[in-house]
Amino acid sequence: MTTPPASIDMNRAPTTDLDERSQGDDLAELTDDCHPPAKPHRWHEEVAKVTLLSDREFQVFRLLGNGSSNRGIARNLRITERTAKAHMSQIMAKLGVESRLQAGLVSYTYQLAILYDIPHFGF
């Protein structure tokens, strides 16, 4: 094993350029750049549209939020995979989302809001 040169203090924490300069304004700038303003209540508008879903679409929606694939949804509901995909298309259109992933996130958010009785979602 190689020993470090005597000029290196192994007990001292490594430094960065930020350590060397004033952190007040620079750190604020970094924070502003790294954290754009968050949209309040992410998925709020989409979750409010859940009431537009039919009973069957809602069943698909719930399974989607639990992480089920189209094949898994079809098997669970005893429908064809093609029918599950058709329901997914309708769900995405009604919620106003662009992808299955977004629909899944809306479903997951909806289920968490119900589980924890979060009132600001308005259902």
Rank of each mutant, 00 (worst) to 15 (best):
K85M: 05
V97F: 02
R75H: 13
A48G: 10
E20R: 09
M10Q: 03
L52C: 02
H120C: 14
D25P: 07
A113L: 00
L115E: 14
L52P: 02
G72C: 06
I8L: 15
I91V: 15
D32W: 05
E81F: 03
A103D: 06
L52Q: 10
A93D: 09
H87I: 03
D33E: 05
S99W: 07
A48T: 13
V60I: 02
R71Y: 13
D19R: 07
Y110S: 02
E45F: 13
D33Q: 10
A113K: 02
A13V: 14
P40Q: 13
T51Q: 09
T3S: 14
T16H: 06
L77T: 03
M10A: 11
L53F: 11
Q23C: 01
D9L: 04
R21A: 00
A38I: 14
L105R: 05
P5T: 01
D26V: 04
A28I: 14
L52D: 06
L95S: 00
P40L: 12
I79Y: 06
H41K: 15
P4Q: 05
A74D: 00
D9I: 07
S69A: 11
A38C: 07
P4S: 04
L63E: 00
F121I: 12
F123V: 12
D55I: 11
V50H: 02
H41C: 09
H120P: 11
E57R: 05
G104S: 15
T2F: 10
G67M: 02
A74K: 01
H120G: 08
A28V: 14
P4K: 09
S89M: 02
D9M: 02
A103Y: 01
S69W: 12
L95V: 08
K39F: 14
M92C: 03
N66Y: 14
R75P: 01
H44N: 13
D117A: 13
E57C: 01
G122L: 10
G65N: 08
F123P: 12
D117L: 07
